Amino acid sequence: MTDTRTLRRKSDNEVVCIACGQVLPRADAREYDKYGDRWDRAGKDFEYLCKPCHRDCCHQPRNGLEETLIRAEGEHADTQAFITEYYTLVSDDISTES
């Protein structure tokens, strides 16, 4: 997996959309806070979306989705391992809700 932390900013004035990879001026981008609270800015590094990708996002509550994705990513270097771990985590969450 590509480490998006190295792709977030091209410079202070340019950012990279995390969805499509487009490089655009920071002023034309939308901040994306993977924890869902972009108003609490202390100690955070934001990621960015271009306007079309931002419009395409679901703006509904994510109920722990980002935390699950981060846990699934762990040390997994390949896509299949990530998907397997994500499925395991989601399956565990579903079984504890029942």
Rank of each mutant, 00 (worst) to 15 (best):
C20L: 07
H76R: 10
R41F: 00
N63R: 07
V23T: 12
F82L: 07
T68P: 02
P52I: 04
Y48A: 07
K34G: 13
I83S: 00
R30H: 11
G64C: 01
G43S: 06
D40H: 12
C57A: 10
L7R: 08
R41N: 11
T68H: 02
H59T: 11
T96H: 08
H54G: 05
D45V: 15
C58L: 13
L7A: 08
G43C: 04
Q22I: 10
M1E: 01
A81P: 03
A72V: 03
T88I: 09
Q60D: 11
R41K: 15
E73F: 11
C17W: 02
H76W: 01
A19K: 08
T79Y: 11
H59V: 06
F82T: 01
F46A: 08
D92F: 00
G64E: 01
D45S: 13
C20T: 07
D28S: 14
V16R: 07
S11K: 01
I70K: 12
V23N: 05
L49Y: 06
T4G: 00
D56G: 15
Y32P: 01
D37N: 12
D40E: 10
G64H: 03
D40G: 07
C58W: 10
H54P: 00
E14K: 09
C17K: 05
F46K: 03
K34L: 09
Q22T: 14
L7F: 05
Y35K: 11
N13P: 00
D40R: 14
F46T: 04
E73N: 10
A19R: 09
S91F: 08
P61G: 11
T6H: 11
E14S: 06
F46S: 05
A29N: 05
C20Y: 04
E97I: 14
Y48F: 15
R38P: 09
F46E: 04
R62H: 12
D45T: 15
S98E: 09
D37A: 11
R8D: 01
D92A: 12
Q22C: 08
L89V: 03
R9W: 05
A27I: 02
A19Q: 04
H76M: 02
G43N: 11
Y86N: 00
A29Y: 03
R41T: 15
M1C: 07
D92K: 06
Y35V: 08
P61V: 11
A42M: 06
R55W: 01
V90P: 01
C58I: 15
C50L: 03
L89T: 04
G43I: 02
Q60G: 06
E67T: 14
I70T: 14
N63C: 07
D28F: 06
R9F: 09
Y32N: 14
A72H: 02
S98I: 10
A19T: 08
E73H: 09
V23K: 10
E31M: 11
G43R: 08
S95Y: 00
G21S: 08
T4C: 00
C50S: 03
G43Q: 03
